[in-house]
Structure formats: structure tokens, C-alpha cells
């Protein structure tokens, strides 16, 4: 039941994208997101589509798997499409009862849906090709300059990696507890909202207790191994840029430059 959640999941396979330095992938995701907000011409989106398609192809992650991540946000996409469709002023196309669809609204809605879908596909592509550990390593190193202004980058990334690490464990635990309570005749599906919320108590109490127990044990294990934060800590596999990372940087900034040039040429504005 709960195992169907794919957002933030890692897809194990061999590919160039998997091997890239996490900093490159983080920057790449940022560049891709920026490119999506450049303009509203068809050409910009065609460019983004080609970029996304090439990266997906290179990543060896099945398209079906990436699209599955969209299922969780279908409602959000539909809602924003509906708002744009019905609430934009402009040239009226259709009018029935209290609804009015304008040409501009239709145009807005289509672009908004594409934007949202690409946004989610782009960012889930990053998590699918990067292990949580790698990701936080990349964040820690990539944001290392913030240490100069006393931002506890190491601690934040450590907390993040622990949190990410525990998501699948807690999901599995929830699944197990739910099954155990089902075996004792619990009913999670029938009844009104209040009854169903109450039915969650036998799941939530043991879940919290186990989360606290795990947190305690982890803290103890970390202290037993003399963990004391950032100072003097070295890495077993320090991040180092390779040739492929340089190529990736050049191609992603090339992509951004082309799209900006296109936009300037089409509309005369940078953004």
C-alpha cells in the first residue's frame, strides 16, 4: 500500500547520469527549472523537451518509472490547470453556465501543466539517479561556501541524510504495524473520517515509539563511533570533478544559453 510512493526514490542501474557528480546534477536540475520559467513560447518548451528526453535516455531509467512519480501530484496539476483555464480574462472561446473559457486561459493552462509535469520529472530524475548519501554529500560540498557566514552546512546535510535514510524504514514499519493491527481485526477503510482517524491511533502510537527508539539507538551508535560533527572529519570518497562532469556543465550551460538566445530573439526580452 504505502510502498507505491516513488518520489525521492533511487533507481539502481548503470548510466552516465548515475555516475555524474551530485553537484552537477543539482546544478543541472536548477538550470532546467530556470529554463522552464524563461518564457512561454513553444520553442522554449521544445528545447526543454529535447533536453529532458536526452537526459532520460542517458539515465537508463524507464520512462514509465519516472511518470509514476506524477501520480502523487495529479490533483495539484488538475487543480492548477482548472484555475488557469477558468479564471483567466481574455478572448472568450466557450461559455456555459458560470464557466468561461478564454483563449488566453487555455494557453496558460496548457503551459502550466507542461511546466509542472516537467518540473516534477526533472527533479525526480535527479533523485532517481542519485543515492540520498550522494545527494547530501553534493549539497554539503556545493553549499560549503555558506560555512563562512556560519551556516551549519554539515549538520544540516547530516540531518537531511538521516531523514532521507529513515523514510523507507518508517514506511516499511508503518506497513508492518498496519498489517499487525489488521490481523487483530482493525479496520482502516470503513467508517467516517472521525472513525478512520481514530483507527490510526493503534498505528501511530507504535510508529512514534519505534521512531524515537531508532533515533536514540542511532545517536548512541554515532557517539560510540566518536562522531563530533564537522571539524576534522574527512571523507572516504571525496567528491572530485571528472571529465564527464565538465562536459555536463558545458552542455547544460550551453542549453541554457541557447534557450535564452531563443527567447531574446523571439520576444526581445531575456526573461
Amino acid at each position: 500500500m504505502l510502498r507505491d510512493i516513488t518520489i525521492g526514490q533511487y533507481y539502481q542501474t548503470e548510466s552516465v547520469i548515475h555516475k555524474l557528480d551530485p553537484r552537477v546534477k543539482l546544478m543541472g536540475t536548477l538550470v532546467f527549472i530556470i529554463s522552464l520559467f524563461l518564457g512561454k513560447s513553444v520553442w522554449i518548451y521544445l528545447g526543454a523537451t529535447i533536453f529532458l528526453a536526452v537526459v532520460i535516455k542517458l539515465s537508463n531509467v524507464p520512462l514509465k518509472f519516472i511518470l509514476k512519480g506524477l501520480k502523487a501530484v495529479v490533483l495539484l496539476i488538475v487543480l492548477s490547470a482548472a484555475f488557469n483555464l477558468f479564471l483567466t480574462d481574455g478572448r472568450v472561446l466557450v461559455h456555459f453556465w458560470i464557466f468561461t473559457i478564454t483563449a488566453e486561459g487555455l494557453y496558460q493552462a496548457v503551459f502550466m501543466v507542461i511546466r509542472l509535469i516537467y518540473l516534477i520529472m526533472g527533479s525526480s530524475l535527479m533523485t532517481l539517479t542519485t543515492t540520498p548519501n550522494h545527494l547530501t554529500d553534493g549539497l554539503e560540498k556545493g553549499l560549503g561556501f555558506l560555512k563562512k557566514i556560519k551556516v551549519p552546512v554539515h549538520e544540516i546535510s547530516m540531518m537531511m541524510s538521516i531523514a532521507l535514510r529513515f523514510i523507507p524504514i518508517l514506511i516499511e514499519e508503518t506497513d508492518k504495524i498496519m498489517k499487525a493491527q489488521l490481523a487483530r481485526g482493525a479496520d482502516f477503510e470503513n467508517g467516517n473520517i472521525l472513525k478512520r482517524a481514530k483507527a490510526m491511533i493503534p498505528v501511530l502510537v507504535p510508529l512514534f515509539i519505534s521512531a524515537f527508539r531508532r533515533a536514540n539507538e542511532l545517536a548512541m551508535a554515532m557517539e560510540a563511533r566518536c562522531y563530533h560533527g564537522d571539524e576534522g572529519r574527512t571523507k572516504m570518497k571525496p567528491l572530485k570533478y571528472q571529465k564527464r562532469d565538465r562536459i555536463a556543465y558545458i552542455s547544460m550551460f550551453g542549453y541554457l544559453a541557447v534557450l535564452i538566445a531563443l527567447n531574446v530573439w523571439m520576444s526581445g526580452r531575456i526573461i
Binding site: I177, A180, R184, A186, V205
Partner: peptide, 29 residues
Amino acid sequence: LRSKVGLVFQYPEHQLFETDIFKDVCFGP
């Protein structure tokens, strides 16, 4: 069926949730 075929999971003590033992045992029936 689940009341007829009782299943005790691994580490079943991790599923206790009530404030006292008696109440917890009452949950099933």
C-alpha cells in the same frame, strides 16, 4: 478469517499501543 486465523508478527511487542495491558489485549475482541 483474521479472527479465526490469528497471526502474531515478529517482534509483536512493537505493536502495543494502549495505556495499560488489559486494554491492549481487549483491542482484538
